[in-house]
């Protein structure tokens, strides 16, 4: 004789413990966290690329360091994020020397030298140049020549590192 299920017990299932199956999520998180820890650099970013320009890419592996920041975007030449002169106004100029940029750089140089005297932080004349990748060589050269004549002879060009 077959077993007849009890009709009274049919709905009396009571609270059921449902547990989420988190295994796949854990897998995903583990992979993400390993990736993020691998890309994590302890130094952080010392140079922040400006928003309105695209740096050229290169295969160099030299890490950037902190220095005076000269940005040459499509429109403005900026020193430490303060606009100095419009790039368009340099087009006609034949001379390599940019007086406005020179004045600004000299101001920073005197400041840096004053700090050197007071606190002993050496003034090395380092300057990093961030240029837009479409910038014509003539403009870039004018900026570099001016830096060289304004107590900042150690120039570095900031680039994106090509991966692989």
């Amino acid at each position: 004789m077959a077993f007849i299920p009890s009709r009274r017990k049919k709905h009396a299932t009571g609270p059921v413990r449902v547990s989420l199956n988190l295994t796949s999520m854990m897998d995903m998180f583990t992979i993400i966290i390993v990736f993020l820890i691998k890309t994590y650099s302890t130094e952080g970013q010392l140079i922040h690329p400006s928003k309105n320009l695209t740096l050229p890419s290169s295969t160099v592996e030299t890490a950037p360091e902190v220095a005076l920041d000269v940005v040459v975007s499509q429109e403005w030449i900026m020193v430490n994020d303060r606009p100095v002169i419009r790039v368009a106004s340099l087009k006609e100029q034949r001379d390599l020397f940019i007086p406005e940029l020179n004045a600004t750089l000299l101001k920073y140089a005197t400041e840096a030298k004053r700090i050197e005297e007071k606190y002993g932080i050496k003034f090395t004349g380092k300057v990093t140049i961030q240029g837009d990748k479409k910038l014509p060589f003539g403009t870039l050269l004018k900026v570099m020549a001016t830096c060289g004549r304004s107590e900042y002879p150690n120039m570095r060009l900031v680039v994106y590192q090509k991966s692989g």
Binding site: T39, G44, Q45, P64, R156, V158
Partner: peptide
Amino acid sequence: TFVKLGVIEL
């Protein structure tokens, strides 16, 4: 840091 920066020393 997803974009890595480098410098060319001149």
